[in-house]
């Protein structure tokens, strides 16, 4: 697999290709797709020898985001491809290209209610038949976030100041005390 050639193909099919820091995020590239390009993208990935790791949905505003994860058997190249569903909560299936997507799409239909157009058998898989309208992983209004709120925040890239908020409240009262004493 020639990564530069593959990247070029991604750029033609997608709206944005982003290099990701593997050491922090655990994957290499993020690709944003228009929903009508999803099938072309999947066909291209299969030609290049990628396998389908996972397919899932994330409930955000303005629309539910479907995330496709691909990786390669020969070289380390882990890719997250994202596309938003349309107003009817629909997106094209890739289950005829990657047959492994068949169950993932049924599961996503169970949990988020995403309809995969062209899927051969979009019946409940994990949930029971009577729970077909349950959609348990949809967020309630109060918890629903905008898509920008769950993206990496560029102004504060270092994770460490965020990871240890504890020392601050301790430091402040001490400072106040010492001022009072003096």
């Amino acid at each position: 697999m020639d990564i530069n050639k593959v990247k070029k193909q991604w750029q033609e099919l997608s709206t944005a290709v982003e290099d990701i820091d593997y050491a922090v995020s655990g994957y290499d590239y993020s690709v944003c797709l228009e929903r009508d390009k999803v099938r072309d993208f999947a066909a291209m990935m299969l030609d290049e020898g990628f396998y389908l790791v996972d397919l899932m949905a994330v409930h955000v505003t303005p629309a539910i985001e479907v995330v496709y994860q691909f990786a390669h058997f020969e070289t380390r190249c882990r890719v997250m491809a994202r596309a938003f569903v349309d107003d009817q909560v629909e997106i094209s299936t890739i289950s005829d290209i990657y047959q492994g997507a068949n169950w993932h799409e049924r599961e996503t239909r169970d949990f988020h209610g995403v309809v995969f157009v062209g899927h051969p058998y979009l019946e409940p898989l994990i949930l029971a038949e009577e729970d077909v309208d349950l959609k348990p992983l949809l967020k309630e209004e109060a918890k629903l976030q905008d898509v920008d709120a769950v993206r990496r925040q560029p102004p504060e890239p270092a994770p460490e100041p965020k990871a240890k908020p504890e020392p601050k409240p301790e430091a402040k009262p001490e400072a106040v005390k010492s001022q009072e004493q003096s």
């Binding site: 995020s25 655990g26 790791v53 996972d54 899932m56 994860q69 769950v150 908020p165």
Partner: peptide, 27 residues
């Protein structure tokens, strides 16, 4: 930290389980 805040973004962690690839994907 006791309260482990995870910076906004998405994270993936893949390991080799006895049956194959296990991936956690966290948003």
């Amino acid at each position: 930290p006791k309260k482990l805040k995870i910076p906004a973004g998405d994270y993936n962690s893949s390991v080799e389980a006895p049956r194959g690839e296990l991936s956690y994907y966290l948003v």
